[in-house]
Each structure stands twice: as C-alpha cells, then as structure tokens.
Amino acid sequence: MSISPGIQIAETPGPVTTSTRAATTIGDGGRLGRRAGRAKGRAGRFGLNVFALLVIVCSVFPVYWMVNMSFTPPNQIISRNPSFLPFDFTFKNYVTAWTREAAPGQTDFPHALASSLTVALAVVVVGALIAFLASIAIARFAFRGRVVFIVSVLVVQMVPGEAMMFTIYNMVDDWRLMNTLVGLFIVHLAAVVPFTIWTLRGFVRGVPAELEEAAQIDGCTKAQAFWKVTFPLLAPGLVATGIFAFIQSWNEFLMALLLLKGYNLTLPPWLNSFQSATEATNWGAVMAGSTLITLPVVIFFLFVQRRMVGGLVSGAVKG
C-alpha cells in the first residue's frame, strides 16, 4: 500500500488502517465500527478526525482556490505572495469573463451559455422522453427480443464515442449539420440515452405494477392509472436522470471542440479558448469563467448524487 509521496490526497488515508488497528485493540471488547468511538480513547478519535479534515481540505481546496482567485483583483493575483482570502473583493473578473470574447472572432460568455443551455435542455427533454418509453417497455413488458435489447443497451453504453470522433465528424458533415447546435445535440443525445434507459428501468421496476392495477380496480382507466399513480412515483427518477444528462452535456468537451467553431461554441470550448487567450494577462477572469461554469453543475449534482451511485454500479458509464 505504498503511495507516491507526490500526491496530495494520497497522504491522507494512508495511516487509517494503523489507527483502526490501535482502536480495536484498546477498544471495549473489540467492538467495531460506529460504536467503537466512545471507549477507545480520545487519541484514536482525534486521529481519525485529523484524517477526515485532511480529506476535506484536499477535496475542497481547488474549488476554494478557484472561487478565491475569481474575486481577487488581477494585480494581486500575479503578486509573489498569494492571498488566501479576497480582501480587496472585486467583481471585475466576472465582468471581464462575461463581456470579453473568448478569442478574436469567437463567442463571448453569454452566447456560449445560451448554446450550452439550448443543447443541454434539449438533450434532457428528448433524452428523458425516448429513454422513458424504452424503460417502460423493458421493465413492464415481457416480449421476445427484450433480453437482446437490454444486452444491446449495455454494449452500446460501453462503445467509446471518442474512438469514432472522426467518423461522427464526417457523418455530421454529410448531414450539413457541421458547426450547428443540432449536430452537437444529436451526438450528446446518443451518448446519454443508453445510460438513461438503464437507470430509468431500475426506477420503473421499483414501482410495483400492482399499484397501477389497484388504481384500475378503483375505477381508473389504464391511462389514468399510469399518469396518476405510476408517473408521480417515477418523477424523482426522471428528475435524477434528467439532471445527470444535463451535466453530461454541459461538461462534454471533445465533440463540442470538434464540431463547433467561432460564435457557436458551447461553454467548455469557450473556456478552453478563453483560457488560452487570456491566461497570460488575466487569470482572475479565467477563474471567474470557470466558477460560472462550475456553479450550475455543483448545485444540480448535490440533488442527484445519492440516486446515481446505484445506477452507475449496476453497469453504467459516465463518458
């Protein structure tokens, strides 16, 4: 379990096993886990909390540093002594990031934001619809070909899209969709749908069909039973997978870089251009742009995180 000393995070958890071992030998009757804390002495508890603190600091530091720098005036950023809090608090970097074009002849932030939102929201709505129908089919119907379809979805999910970047480039070009948001939308949609089907299928399966049948006995039509009973129960699943699709599309960099140019850039290629063009002169503005891109993802992510873990492990992919 030797870990290269160069890595920040690696240093934190290393000795955890040693301290747990110490904890259990001193512990009351060798009890483990959550209850072990009380009796094993302050030292063990203190040690664990120190490691916890280290994990927290390592995780949060880059995010904190980005936000800190985004509020620091440009002339202070390039001083030899970094300031750990933005004492001369300024919004100037945000104004620069918001108004200046990424590079000569390229889009500015508001347009890139509009492009990203257009593509991501379209992917969410259309993707959720397509995947929802498919997940109903594989979770609620028994039919010949069902297993074949499920296997196909799992396999397709694993096909590395980036391996086909130039083939897809040519395809989009042949369709006269080069440098359009529609072209990027279709690529993102195909990337998101297999995962969404697989995850939604889990949610649909989690709602017992008996509930719907009970509603029908109580006088609902089949359609009413579905929309009034099953659909509300599936809503959290739809929201979770929708947010996941949004984040995927929002973060996607490679195909956006390949397919879009000039004024049509979405946010990731915008940040890439903006950084290359501005880093020598204005890191504060780059950090401000980066913060603006990060913000919506972090907020959305906190909502869905719990739900996504299960879906990912039962055979899924983030790319």
Binding site: T20, G37, V60, N251, V286, V297, Q305
Partner: peptide
C-alpha cells in the same frame, strides 16, 4: 464508517464538490 455523523457529512460534502467539478474547470484550476 469510523466517523461521527457530523464529520461524515462534512467529508461527503467535500467529496461531492470534487466530484461535481467539471473536468475542464478542474484542470484549468
């Protein structure tokens, strides 16, 4: 698993932040 509830929540939130950060933003930072 060894932490008290408060600490565990704090660690989870820290991990979430690192997880949620867009890869491009993270690389730039």
């Amino acid at each position: 698993t060894k932490l008290s509830k408060g600490w565990r929540l704090a660690v989870s939130i820290g991990l979430m932040l690192a997880w949620a950060m867009p890869p491009l933003s993270a690389t730039v930072v």
